[in-house]
């Protein structure tokens, strides 16, 4: 069995976000990056499938040089090999273009299961996993918080609203988009990190994958015109002063509410 995991490297959750000069994305120089939180849970699901049987885990990421670090981390956690799509045109693609690139890799790799994170912490699009499944001709389920595999199918629980869950059965091959909290994500062991250095990372461009014409900024159907700090309409009354002064003001507010 083979499983494929799609990883995105995103700005660290605590990174300072400044809008770039052209206004269309954030300033990415000199900030820390990490594996998208949702994708760490997807990777963990894949590694558990590996632990449970004989699965090869292939991690795939689209992005510039820095993405190597994310792939090495994944290899250190137990993935077997990596495919790095390093191509500025791929980076400039919209969700559909990136899904086409990943679908081309899925066609080559023929995985039994593709694990993705439900969404990315940067764009919050939650677009690529179902798009990739559609293009790869696979059924899909999103917001997955647990899964049980049988010989030919997987039964998953999807998180709905208010703590409800939907149980869905999918035949393999299929794609699962994992919700955060689905599992406890492991850390890379020192031994794992050492071994990761010897594991293969295959570097490709969109053209190598035969989809060069279909991706890139020119082929994008969705364009981000600008990003900006949300207008502050109903900003809270901000309390200022020393800690003592702030505490006194808070006690006054709480007393007025009659909850003491």
């Amino acid at each position: 069995m083979k499983v494929m995991v799609c990883l995105k490297q995103v700005p660290h959750q605590d990174a300072r976000l400044d809008v770039a000069a052209d206004g269309s994305w954030i300033q990415e120089d000199n900030i820390k990056f990490e594996i998208n939180s949702y994708d760490t849970y997807a990777l963990e699901e894949a590694l558990r499938a590996k632990d449970a049987g004989e699965a090869e885990v292939v991690v795939v990421s689209i992005g510039p040089d820095r993405v190597t670090q994310a792939l090495r981390t994944a290899l250190g956690m137990g993935a077997d090999r990596a495919v790095h799509v390093k191509d500025p045109e791929a980076d400039a693609s919209d969700s559909l273009g990136k899904a086409k690139i990943l679908a081309a890799i899925a066609k080559q790799e023929e995985p039994d299961v593709i694990y993705c994170g439900l969404m990315a912490d940067d764009g919050n699009f939650s677009a690529i996993p179902p798009m990739l499944a559609e293009l790869a001709g696979m059924p899909s389920a999103t917001g997955v918080i647990s899964s049980e595999a049988s010989d030919t199918s997987i039964t998953v629980r999807r998180e709905l609203e208010g703590g409800c869950r939907e149980v869905v059965e999918l035949p393999r091959p299929c794609l699962l988009a994992i919700q955060t909290g689905a599992n406890q994500v492991r850390y890379a062991s020192l031994k794992g990190i050492m071994q990761a250095k010897k594991k293969p990372v295959d570097v490709k461009t969109a053209a190598d994958l035969g989809v060069g014409e279909q991706v890139g900024a020119g082929a994008a159907k969705v364009k981000i015109n600008k990003i900006y700090i949300p207008p502050k309409s109903d900003q809270a009354e901000l309390l200022e002063g020393s800690t003592d002064e702030i505490v006194t003001q808070l006690v006054g507010k709480i007393r007025e509410l009659g909850v003491l």
Binding site: L96, F125, S126, P130, L135, L160
Partner: peptide
């Protein structure tokens, strides 16, 4: 953009080779 909406909408867009914008 409900659990059903975000599950199905990107598939519809990809099937149409169309743009998708969420939430």
């Amino acid at each position: 953009n409900t659990p059903a909406g975000w599950d199905v909408a990107p598939r519809v867009a990809a099937g149409l080779d169309a743009a998708y914008i969420s939430d």
